[in-house]
Amino acid sequence: MHDVTAAQRIASTVLHAAHERQARRVEQISIALGAMTMIDPDQLTFWLEQVLRGTVAEGAEIEIEQLPLIVRCTRCDSESEVAVPDDPIYHLMPFAPACPACGCEEIEIVGGDACVVRSMRITEASDDE
C-alpha cells in the first residue's frame, strides 16, 4: 500500500467514525503500522495532516506505533522477527522475507503486515450549542 492511499483510507475511516458519534473535534488518532507495509511513519503523518485539513480532525495529534515483521517458518517451525530493509527503491525490487533460522523463503507472515486504525479521542457535540 502507498502512504497517500493509506492516509486517505485512514482519514475516511476516522471521519466516518467521528460522524457516527457526532464528534465536534477529533483530538487524537492512534495507528498501528506494520513494518511490512513499508510505509514511512513520517510520510504517513504528513499526508494524513494534508487530507484531514478542513475536517473535524484537522490538527489531530497523530500517534503511530510501529510493529515489527514476524514470520513463521513452515520448514523449521520457528517464529522470528525479521528486519525490513529501509529501502527507498522497494518499488523496483520487492522485499522477500526469509527465515533467519534456516534461510528458506517458505514462510508465513504472522505479524507486521497490517495498518490498523486503532482508536481516536474525540470531543463530542454539546447539547447547548
Binding site: R21, Q28, A114, C115, M120, R121, S126, D127
Partner: peptide, 24 residues
C-alpha cells in the same frame, strides 16, 4: 450523549479497522 460527559472532555473511541483487510 449523557450529561455525565462534560462537553469539552475528550472521549476515547475504539475503531480497530485493518486497512489491508478492507482492501481484500
Amino acid at each position: 450523549m449523557t450529561d455525565a460527559n462534560a462537553p469539552d472532555q475528550g472521549r476515547d473511541i475504539i475503531i480497530d479497522v485493518d486497512l489491508s483487510k478492507r482492501t481484500s
